[in-house]
């Protein structure tokens, strides 16, 4: 029982990341009809927004401390962050400590701008081209973006920790009457899950309860008719591309304390997120979210020793096995709509 609960909880945070990325992918596909293989790179750039802000907040000036020496035996240079010099060590230290949550504010305009530039500068030229062309160009763009990040930040992972108050874990099992250490769960992963739920809820509310969202939904259902009504749907879809980029970026920002970001992390998530979109149903937002959480949890279960003892290597293939089974039994995915990608 405790093992099941444990892996369910693990699957929730993994599923949160899949769901957020898949949500953005589906938004872009549903509105613009573009299969965007650069979406994982947007997740990665979001995480590097957190790294960048963390570095900005720790920009320092150097003073020579004659009592200490560096690795060459010269007088050591001591670095003091400007933030600590301006606001005092305590307040400055707290600001630096909260770099990741603060990066949310930093990342939103940056990611919207990147999404906007990407759509206007490159992707709009491929709207009427075959999906294969779109995949090639966006995949190429993803590689360019990750090489740019590697050039500036290097290939090694960069630790970007959570605020001190969210470090460590709590005994979830004891809260529900289980033995000590039966179900341990890190605070930040819980934060990530609730953050993802908030973003997903926000996107759905935006689409459901605003006039803009209503037009976008109408455009997703029948672009031509909306255009005939005199609405500039292209402009609205461009904004949606920016929003989708921001969703992926925010997913990346908040993921940095879970795994130290590196230039390749977008690619690690991209393929799985595409499977999530296909399993959920191309163009279906609820399907993407449902499939994201479902596959995250299944992946967690597949890495249990008891399961691996029965089917060795299942942890590496479970998502693809489930995808095959679902596509065989429900060819449009869990919540796919008729006519999407069927022509």
């Amino acid at each position: 029982m405790d093992a099941i609960l444990l892996q369910t909880l693990n699957g929730l945070d993994k599923g949160s990341a899949y769901a957020l990325i898949a949500l953005g992918l589906t938004l872009i596909f549903g509105t613009l009809g573009v299969v965007n293989f650069a979406h994982g790179a947007l997740f990665m750039i979001g995480s590097f927004c957190a790294v960048t802000l963390s570095r900005l907040l720790t920009l320092s000036f150097e003073t020579v401390d004659p009592t200490k020496t560096d690795f060459l035996g010269n007088p050591a240079k001591v670095k003091t962050p400007y933030v600590e010099a301006w606001f005092g060590p305590e307040a400055g230290g707290t600001i630096i400590d909260w770099a990741v949550p603060l990066a949310i504010i930093f990342a939103i305009p940056v990611m919207i701008a990147i999404g906007y530039a990407m759509e206007r500068g490159l992707i709009k030229h491929f709207y009427k081209r075959p999906h294969a062309d779109q995949i090639l160009v966006t995949f190429g763009l993803a590689i360019v973006l990750q090489e740019v990040i590697k050039y500036f930040f290097g290939a090694n992972p960069i630790p970007t920790p959570a605020p001190e108050v969210f470090k460590g874990s709590f005994d979830f099992g004891m809260l529900i009457g289980m033995d000590a250490n039966a179900v341990i769960y890190p605070y930040w992963r819980m934060v990530y899950f609730f953050f993802a739920a908030l973003i997903i809820g926000g996107v759905f509310a935006f689409l459901q309860f605003t006039t803009f969202g209503m037009v976008v939904r109408a455009g997703m259902a029948d672009r031509e008719t909306v255009g005939l009504l005199g609405i500039n749907i292209d402009r609205k879809f461009t904004i949606m591309f920016g929003i989708a980029a921001a969703v992926a970026g925010l997913a990346g920002v908040m993921y940095t304390p879970i795994n130290s970001p590196n230039y390749h992390m977008g690619m690690d998530f991209l393929v799985l997120s595409f499977v999530v979109v296909v399993v959920g149903g191309m163009g279906s937002l609820p399907g993407a979210v449902l499939a994201g959480f479902m596959l995250g949890i299944l992946e967690s279960f597949a890495s249990m020793n008891a399961i691996k003892a029965i089917i060795p290597g299942i942890d590496q293939i479970i998502i693809y096995v489930v995808a095959i089974v679902i596509l065989l039994t429900r060819p449009r995915g869990l919540m796919g709509r008729k006519g999407v990608m069927e022509d």
Binding site: L6, I184, N259, D315
Partner: peptide, 16 residues
């Protein structure tokens, strides 16, 4: 798996 990036599902059962 060599390609694994999140090890939480492998680490969670350790304490038990």
């Amino acid at each position: 798996p060599l390609a694994a990036t999140d090890f939480s599902s492998y680490i969670a059962p350790v304490l038990n």
